[in-house]
Every structure is written in structure tokens, then in C-alpha cells.
Simulated scan of single mutants.
Amino acid sequence: MAGTLDGYPQHVREQVARTRELVARLHAELPRWGLVVWTAGNVSQRVVVDAAGPSGRDLLVIKPSGVTYDELTPESMVVCDLDGVLVDGGRAPSSDTAAHAYVYRNMPEVGGVVHTHSTYATAWAARAEPVPCVLTMMADEFGGDIPIGPFALIGDDSIGRGIVETLRGSRSPAVLMRNHGPFTIGPDAKAAVKAAVMVEEVARTVHVSRQLGEPLRIEQDHVDSLYARYQNVYGQGEGAPAQEKEHA
């Protein structure tokens, strides 16, 4: 049953409405980039409440469970608290909501979370093998290998715990959960979607490279240099914010 936002002040309700529009729009990017099939996958974004609501805690906006991508609208997005409990919306939240909520509770710097079952990244997850940092694009975006997270079952916050344990202190915004698939994080949902796109791109490229022979790792000092430049210098003269940077 739908909850209600009536107890929240007007500025929070307006922020939720904007976030619903954003999250609905970003979900369209997942099939566009070939990262999902049918109803699989999800995007969420944190709504910062600043102690202005009934619980004084942040909220999250995520897609409802079992709805195809061409049926998603801003109005169909659901709002949950950071325990994954429905606050507002006419449908049940995504089955991955508990994982997203755990990440937000335990990584306050994270504003967006994405999960897909994109083919190449999930193939690496099925092998429980990190994607090695053999591309400058990987050094730029991930600061090293894309790590493997532990096996965990859907239904509680076990996946979320695995994401946090793997990514806390890591430069990578992506983890390949073993036998499951990629989860990505970012300061907002758009950045997390970009990370999901880039995970699939590098997973595919490194897989193709391995068909030709063993790819060559980039030396760690070069990885560090590339990461620092891309994250802190690249594009600044062009006025591009970090989440808009492109490889060129």
C-alpha cells in the first residue's frame, strides 16, 4: 500500500518530485546502453532530508519491482526510507531496495546506486574474477582493478553489506558481486549510471583482448598518475564537471 509524504515539508516533497523525474529518465539509459533485459536492473538516488521529515532521515527513490522499462514514469517511481520501507508509491519497491538502502546508510558520500546484469561484466562476476587494470580508461575511471564482491542472496541487506565491505576505502565505483552482477555507486545517480556503462565497456574490451593473448597490466605508478589526472585535472579547463568528463 502506498505511503505518504504528507508529513514532510514542501521543499522535501519538491525535491522528491524532481528526483522521481531524474531517476525515471536515467532508467531509460540502461536499455539504451544494452545493460539490462526485461525488468532486470535498477537505479536509485538519495534524497537528502536534512532532519526536516518525520524521522529526520534521508530517503531514496528507486524503480518499482517487475515493471518494464517502457512503462516507467516519474509517478511510478517509489520512495523508501533508508531501511528500505516504502514511504510513498503505488507499487512494491525493487527487490534490490534493501541493498541500495544499506549502501546509503553506511556510505554517506554515496548519492546514487545502480545495478545491472550487463553481459560481459556479469560474465566476469560469474567467474569471480576481478577485471584487471589493463586500459588507461580503467585507470581513469576505476583507479585500478574492478573488484569482486562476495556471494550473497537477494532478500535482505546481504548484498548491500558485500558492496560496502568491498568498496569502502576503494577507488573503484564498481563491484562485481559474485555470481550476480555489477553494482555501481556515485555522488549522484547519473554518475553511478556512467560507471555502469563504463564497467560493461571495459569488461567487454578486456575479454576481447584475452582472446588475443594475455593483456598487459599498467604499472601501479602509472595507474595512480592517470587516476589523479582524470579525477582532478582533466577537463577542468573546459569547464566540465567530473561526472560529465569524456575520454578523448
Rank of each mutant, 00 (worst) to 15 (best):
T97P: 01
D70P: 10
I163K: 00
T97N: 02
R178V: 00
P64Q: 08
G160W: 09
K245M: 15
D145M: 09
Q220R: 13
M137E: 15
R32W: 01
D6W: 11
N232R: 13
E21W: 11
G144W: 15
D221M: 12
Y69C: 06
S118W: 03
V202M: 11
V197M: 08
Y8D: 02
E129Y: 03
V113I: 10
A228K: 14
Q10H: 13
L22H: 10
A101W: 08
H222P: 03
F151D: 02
L72W: 03
V23F: 02
E141D: 08
A101Y: 07
Q231V: 04
R91T: 05
R161L: 06
R178E: 06
R20Y: 06
T122Q: 09
P74K: 07
D157R: 06
S118H: 08
T116M: 15
A191Y: 08
S94F: 03
G239H: 10
Y69Q: 15
A128D: 03
K194V: 13
T184W: 00
R25A: 15
D50E: 10
T136F: 10
R204E: 13
V206A: 00
A189N: 01
V131L: 09
E244K: 09
T122H: 02
V199H: 00
S118T: 03
I163R: 02
S65T: 08
A101C: 14
L59H: 04
P54F: 05
V12N: 07
G111N: 10
V43W: 09
A24Q: 02
I185Y: 01
A98I: 14
A195M: 10
L153A: 12
V103A: 01
H27R: 10
A123V: 04
R178I: 00
D140T: 04
A92E: 12
T119D: 07
I146N: 01
A174P: 04
C80T: 15
A196W: 02
R168V: 04
Y234N: 07
S55R: 08
H117W: 10
D140Q: 07
R229K: 07
V48W: 02
T19F: 03
Y102E: 13
G89R: 04
F183N: 01
L176K: 01
A139T: 13
H11Q: 14
V16R: 05
E244N: 05
G155D: 03
L72N: 04
